[in-house]
Design a binder for these strands. Sequence first.
DNA 1: GAAATAAGTCAACATGGCTGACGTAAAATC
DNA 2: GATTTTACGTCAGCCATGTTGACTTATTTC
Lengths: 164, 164
Amino acid sequence: MADVKSGPNPLFLREEDLRQGIELLFYAYRDFTAEPDAMLAKIGLGRAHHRVVYFVGRYPSITVTELLGILQITKQSLSRVLGDLVEQGYVAQRTGTKDRRQRLLTLTEKGLELERHLSDAQRARIAQAYRNAGAAAVEGFRTVMLGIIDQEDRARFQPAIPKR
Amino acid sequence: MADVKSGPNPLFLREEDLRQGIELLFYAYRDFTAEPDAMLAKIGLGRAHHRVVYFVGRYPSITVTELLGILQITKQSLSRVLGDLVEQGYVAQRTGTKDRRQRLLTLTEKGLELERHLSDAQRARIAQAYRNAGAAAVEGFRTVMLGIIDQEDRARFQPAIPKR
DNA sequence: GAAATAAGTCAACATGGCTGACGTAAAATC
DNA sequence: GATTTTACGTCAGCCATGTTGACTTATTTC
């Protein structure tokens, strides 16, 4: 039987608290993606395109391998959406100078505009939530979210190492 | 151009903070779903099955309409996965007594076991993150996540109204 | 008695994952 | 300098999960 109403355990975490955590993630992600999904549908693109546009915008000149590492999908899956984006002029590719096997990806003006448009809804949602919650809550949010993310990717959120 | 390095605005939120929020959600959800997805793949089920099993476990005797309201998918989509789960003996249906049009859904023993198994990985991840972050951070996490969720579903997280 | 609701069904389609096999160019290694 | 590894791409086919639209049945509500 699911031990739904067990008492507090020595670490202060009740079954119910954990369930709530699971559900917060489910509902937040569901609502967080709904708006961009609706916009994308109008121009014949999907969530996968959004992710690529987002991360190419985030890391200009990112390589295909790096992008695959972030998205955790196969290159065949990426190739489909990336192909669409290049074909439709959202993403530009150029050969790497240091390593000429690499294809460095950047957003075109059109791509930048799409990225801004799509992520605006998400930014607004986050901004609203942050503002209403206050700085201390935001700090707690960051800490917990980082704890949920696999160790390997936590470094992405660390402030750049100051040169000394 | 994306205003990535603009200074703090009067509400303390910088473009960079918002980007970070977006990314925290992306990575957390990606890693949060990876483990159960791998388990599900071994028994020929998918994430959609997990969601149904989860919410039927969460709300025993839930109706199909209520479940659709939570998942925000069409009944045709639900019917496929629900059909699999009933057929394979994870979920039991019985006719509502008050309203005999309804099919009330509950987990069988087998379903309870599956739910526990799948969600254990998620619970462990949350528990770990909560423990490392501390009670205050968890409170902040909850507050921000609630702010991200659409108004309509926030009530699900309110403590049951005490009878007076 | 008529209308609305809960649930199910059939058919067709799109998206975005996957595996497997294979190819090419460039870089790195022996 | 030859071999191996890496980065990237491609073709083909499959699966899971979402969609729309049309229609049915049983039951409840008005």
